[in-house]
Design a protein around this nucleic acid. Structure first.
Lengths: 201, 201
DNA sequence: TGATCTTACGACCGATCGTGCTATTTTGAG
DNA sequence: CTCAAAATAGCACGATCGGTCGTAAGATCA
């Protein structure tokens, strides 16, 4: 048994490192492109040894998605909520904030997964929808606060605002990954600024 | 030889019907999910018989993509260009117009393919980028005409306009396919109206 | 230390993938 | 009708996929 604290079993630590690697890998090839063989190779263990940590590939994918959501909350949402209340909405919903550094953007596996699983029913899709609704709710709530504090228009449809924010995130990822256009970052920021401007009082 | 007209060889006919079926199928499972076996089954011929019409799967995918682009031009762009000049920009770039009826929207395979191949170099990706740039150029040009005719602001960045239009198309497809929210259509239209409004004089 | 439970490995399975090769059927021009 | 050419089917291959199983190595605790 573990000593009721930081100590964790060996299995749990490797399981966590598997999940970490899977998160990175799925940022490159997508959740759907995730393969037990190459993941095992990257982690440095045998396929079956890796597989023993998960009941099925679907469960593995779901866990990876949960890990991605957790990372997103930690990296994007929590820092945003530490901002002064008035700035929250724009901070936590900026594509530049979500997409962050070109490398290993926290929102990326999420967007990629959304594309892969939008028509593939199952555990992963359900989990994805659930997380997405949570995130949209968070953005909408932040916008509502901004409305109450007078930074945003009183008649702003905050759900619509969240919709458009997510849309810009998705569009930004598409553009950047497909075209590799360095101008994309500037375009995304301009578009986002336009959205904020249109929501202002 | 053919009689210099409508007559086409049998091979070309079946090849075209294969492409049609492939277009429908890829709207469901994506270009990446396209499989020779199930495609052959759907067309009603053997896998090898079908395969004989294409040098490789990659070439097949490229041809499907070209067909999708052609259909998009026919169904969306050409009708839009027959509108009075002032309306073109909004007509040809409306997500509702591009996405059209919930079933068999012409832009869908394009968006799905963009998600699948944004990080998979090769023929398909190259073709995809080429077509995308064409479409963006068309939208940008339409916007420019609207500017010249005084319907849009004189200082409008038409490339930025095209970027945001494509973004809305992508976002709409994501939302609709993932959440299945009937409200999505209304949200997309509202977002698009906002974009047009912001571009007006 | 010795016993026990956890963790990891290698071999293997059936299915499916893309892709060639060869035979057979179908088409269409002379 | 004849017959070469085109079109299609049959078959098999190597690779890779998710997944299973028996077992060896390693950790944990009495």
């Amino acid at each position: 048994m573990e000593s009721l604290g930081g100590a964790v079993s060996k299995g749990e630590t490797t399981r966590q490192s598997i999940l970490d690697q899977a998160l990175d890998l799925s940022s490159e090839v997508g959740l759907e492109g995730l393969t037990l063989g190459v993941l095992a190779q990257r982690v440095g263990m045998s396929k079956s040894g890796l597989y023993a940590h998960f009941a099925s590939k679907e469960l593995l994918q779901r866990d990876v998605l949960d890990a991605a959501a957790a990372r997103f909350v930690d990296v994007v949402l929590v820092p945003a909520l530490k901002q002064p209340r008035g700035c929250r909405a724009s901070r936590c919903s900026s594509p530049a904030g979500c997409a962050g550094a070109p490398r290993s953007s926290p929102g990326l596996p999420f967007v990629a997964a959304a594309a892969d699983f939008d028509d593939r029913p199952g555990l992963v899709r359900d989990s994805l929808i659930s997380h997405l609704k949570d995130m949209l709710g968070a953005v909408s709530r932040a916008a509502r606060i901004a409305v109450e504090e007078g930074h945003f228009r009183a008649d702003l449809d905050t759900d619509q605002f969240a919709y458009e924010v997510w849309g810009q995130l998705v569009a930004y990822q598409h553009y950047r990954r497909l075209l590799g256009d360095p101008e994309t970052q500037a375009r995304a920021q301009r578009a986002f600024r336009g959205l904020i401007e249109a929501s202002r009082t």
